[in-house]
C-alpha cells in the first residue's frame, strides 16, 4: 500500500500495465515528453520510450482511429483524450468503429482499446473543459464505461479496463485528481467492473453517485447523520456494466433513492437508474425517486458552482424524499 493522489494512481496503473505486458502502449496529445497536461503519464516516456508513449498530432479521430488499428493487430493501446470535451472529433470512430468491431465481424475482430479522458466540472474550465457526457457512451452498445472515485479504484479499474477484451471508456474525475489521496495497493491491483462500492451503509435512504460526486454525496450523508438520518451511499464504479443487483437491493432496504450526477438531467445516467428502480424496486419505494444533477444548460464558466451538484443540494433532495412519505 502506498498513499497517493488519484492522478498518481492513474500513473501507477498505466506503469503497472506496461510492465506486465509489452503489447500495452499509450498514445495521445502531449503525453510523452510533457507527461500529459495533468501529468497522468509523467515519467512513462522516459521509462518506456517513444515507441510506447506516443505523442500524436492534434487529432482525436487520428488517435482513436490508429488505436483501433493497433488493437485489431493485437496490441492493447491506451488512448488519452486530453479532455472529454474534445472527444467529439473521434465520436464516429468510437461509435461506428470501436464499439461495433467485435459485433460486426461476428467475433473475428475484437477491439480492446482503452480510452482515458478527464471529465467533469469544478476546475473553472468553462464550457469546453468541464462536461460530463458519459451517457453518450453508455447509450452505445459495445462500450464499457468506468469512472473511479478513489485513488485505489483509479488504479484498480484502469488495470481492469486495459486487460478487458473489449473497449472501455475510462473517465477520470479531474476535479479530484489531486484533492483526494488514499492508500493504493501496490502491484497488479484490479477492481472488477459491475460491482458497486458500498461507501457508507444506511437504512433510511440510498444515494447513488459516481466519480467526483461520491464525495459530496458522502458529505451530505454525514450532515444528515447529525439530524438522525441514516443514509446509504453507493459508488457505482462502472456504468456499463452496471451493478443492478446492488442498486435494487439497496432501495429494497431503504425504500428511498436519490441519484446524483453532474451531467445534465435529460437522458442522463440518472434517468436510466430511475427507470431501473421503477421497473425492479417499485413496490419497495416509499417516495418518488429524486435526481440531483447538472441543469439542462451548457456548462457555465462563472456560475459553475451554481450548476454543479453539491452536498447542500443532495441534503435538500434527501430531506424532500423523507418528507414525501
Amino acid at each position: 500500500m502506498t498513499e497517493m493522489t488519484l492522478v498518481q494512481a492513474v500513473n501507477r496503473g498505466l506503469e503497472e500495465a506496461m510492465r506486465q505486458d509489452p503489447d500495452v502502449l499509450l498514445l495521445g496529445e502531449d503525453i510523452g515528453v510533457n507527461g500529459g497536461v495533468f501529468r497522468a503519464t509523467e515519467g512513462l516516456f522516459k521509462q518506456f520510450g517513444a515507441d510506447r508513449v506516443i505523442d500524436t498530432p492534434l487529432s482525436e479521430t487520428g488517435i482513436v482511429g490508429t488505436a483501433i488499428g493497433m488493437a485489431l493487430y493485437g496490441l492493447k493501446p491506451v488512448a488519452e483524450i486530453q479532455f472529454l470535451d474534445f472527444i467529439y472529433p473521434a465520436f464516429d470512430q468510437i461509435v461506428s468503429e470501436l464499439a461495433k468491431f467485435r459485433y460486426r465481424s461476428g467475433g473475428q475482430y475484437p477491439c480492446p482499446v482503452t480510452i482515458r479522458a478527464p471529465y467533469g466540472g469544478g476546475i473553472k474550465g468553462g464550457l469546453y473543459h468541464s462536461q460530463s457526457t458519459e451517457a453518450y457512451f453508455c447509450h452505445t452498445a459495445g462500450l464499457k464505461v468506468a469512472i473511479p472515485s478513489t485513488p485505489a479504484d483509479a488504479k484498480g479499474l484502469l488495470l481492469t479496463a486495459i486487460h478487458d477484451p473489449d473497449p472501455v471508456i475510462f473517465l477520470e474525475p479531474k476535479r479530484i485528481y489531486r484533492s483526494v489521496t488514499g492508500e493504493v495497493p501496490d502491484g497488479d491491483h484490479r477492481v472488477p467492473f459491475g460491482r458497486a462500492r458500498l461507501v457508507r451503509e444506511g437504512n433510511d435512504v440510498s444515494v447513488f453517485a459516481y466519480g467526483a460526486m461520491v464525495a459530496p454525496a458522502t458529505e451530505a450523508a454525514e450532515a444528515l447523520a447529525a439530524e438522525g438520518l441514516s443514509t446509504e451511499v453507493i459508488d457505482l464504479r462502472s456504468l456499463v456494466p452496471l451493478d443492478e443487483e446492488a442498486v435494487v437491493a439497496s432501495v429494497e432496504k431503504t425504500g428511498r433513492a436519490v441519484v446524483v450526477h453532474e451531467a445534465a438531467r435529460t437522458c442522463g445516467f440518472g434517468a436510466e437508474l430511475s427507470a431501473i428502480l421503477a421497473e425492479k424496486a417499485f413496490f419497495s419505494l416509499r417516495a418518488p425517486i429524486a435526481r440531483v444533477t447538472g441543469y439542462d444548460t451548457p456548462f457555465p464558466y462563472a456560475l459553475e458552482n451554481a450548476y454543479l451538484p453539491n452536498a447542500e443540494k443532495i441534503v435538500h433532495a434527501v430531506r424532500a424524499t423523507m418528507k414525501a412519505a
Binding site: I68, M70, L72, L75, Q93, K100
Partner: peptide, 20 residues
C-alpha cells in the same frame, strides 16, 4: 478487416495497424 459504412474511417485503422 471488416469494413463499416461510414466513409474513410478505415484509413486511420490501416495506419494504426502499420504502427502495431
Amino acid at each position: 478487416v471488416v469494413p463499416s459504412s461510414p466513409i474513410g474511417t478505415q484509413i486511420t485503422h490501416a495506419v494504426g495497424a502499420a504502427m502495431a
